[in-house]
Design a protein around this nucleic acid. Structure first.
Lengths: 186, 186
DNA sequence: AAGATAAAACTAATATCATTAGTTTTATCT
DNA sequence: AGATAAAACTAATGATATTAGTTTTATCTT
């Protein structure tokens, strides 16, 4: 064991994730982390170089968890079923982890190889579930971009409470995915 | 004229909009505004109550401009043409005014009646262009939500530079809108 | 033309951040 | 029992938003 027991890096990241999802990314501050960990904020610098590193690590964690859930959701499924499962899983992650989800959609810093890699894996997963449509080169890219767009757009507006009408939100989501898939077939 | 000439509220809002679009929302600070207006930051409080009011006013300006451009784009057009024109105008506003666009998609504070009103007008416009599809009640809501989602999702990912493949982005956008419209017809 | 007015600017101060430097504390190892 | 190392700490700096109080100055009144 180390000369003196105290918090470890993972404690910081874990609490940061909790704050991000419960109170919003803007509440993830050195001051708030220190309060929750019952230490003074300068002590955090014994474990992490500052807020930029914290957000990088939090983004990586978010992408890993997001990927794992999406992957899990599609296991053993094919075609339309796989697409709907991935879509549903996508929306649920955003709802359950609004703070982490926001981090997953920010443009990754190209220097952060690990982050770029995880972001690429998510796009590869989306590509996989779209592959049964046998789209020609450019159309496949169009379809991937379109699918990513509607997933994120719906998740985002939903998160912000932008769907106010008294109509079931999940049904609207299924409607959207179905409409897009029908449109793809032609 | 007033007892002593200086800046006026509109100067602050105008410069705030410039900074928002050129440097990002996070650069819209009292400190930066004061620098650009060649005054000290406390002097700004002679004209505005603080950052919250500034962002409220900036959001209203953004929504007004956004609505005006969307409306203008659809004038005299019908059906598919109107939808494509509105879509194209949507993406262009986001590209030309990334800072203002971000403000238009935040959930409006329900207490800000004027902001809510403008946001509603934009949704009404989207509803209008979708009306030729003669969708039944719930399906109309689904379609509106879906269309808003794909517009925002595409605009957002585009803004963040998330479409990296060497395939024309505007073609992808047209592909997405067309696919959705085809899907709506069934 | 001189003084009053009002609204603009200002300085000074407080509070909250992130961060750095330097000091103290303390669990473990020798 | 003392050395070590890494954790905690305090103190300080610089950026931010904001408030309070003072000064400046263009216009209006007499």
């Amino acid at each position: 064991m180390s000369p003196r027991a105290g918090i470890v890096l993972d404690d910081i990241i874990r609490v940061a994730a909790e704050i991000a999802d419960a109170n919003g990314l803007q509440e993830v501050t050195m001051a708030n982390l220190a309060k929750r960990l019952l230490i003074k904020s300068p002590s955090l610098y014994n474990h992490i170089s500052g807020l930029p590193e914290l957000f990088n690590r939090l983004t990586l964690l978010a992408l890993e968890n997001f990927y794992a859930e999406l992957k899990q959701a599609t296991l053993g499924l094919e075609k339309k079923e796989a697409i709907h499962a991935l879509s549903q899983s996508y929306i649920e992650f955003a709802r359950n982890h609004p703070g982490l989800y926001e981090l997953t959609i920010e443009a990754p810093n190209p220097k952060q190889k690990d982050i770029v890699h995880m972001a690429d894996k998510i796009i590869a997963l989306i590509t996989e579930v779209l592959s049964p449509f046998h789209l020609a080169e450019e159309n496949l890219i169009h379809a991937i971009r379109g699918f990513r767009s509607l997933l994120h757009g719906f998740a985002f507006i939903d998160l912000k409470g932008g769907f106010g009408m008294p109509v079931d939100i999940d049904q609207s989501f299924t409607f959207l995915v179905d409409a897009f898939l029908r449109g793809l077939k032609e």
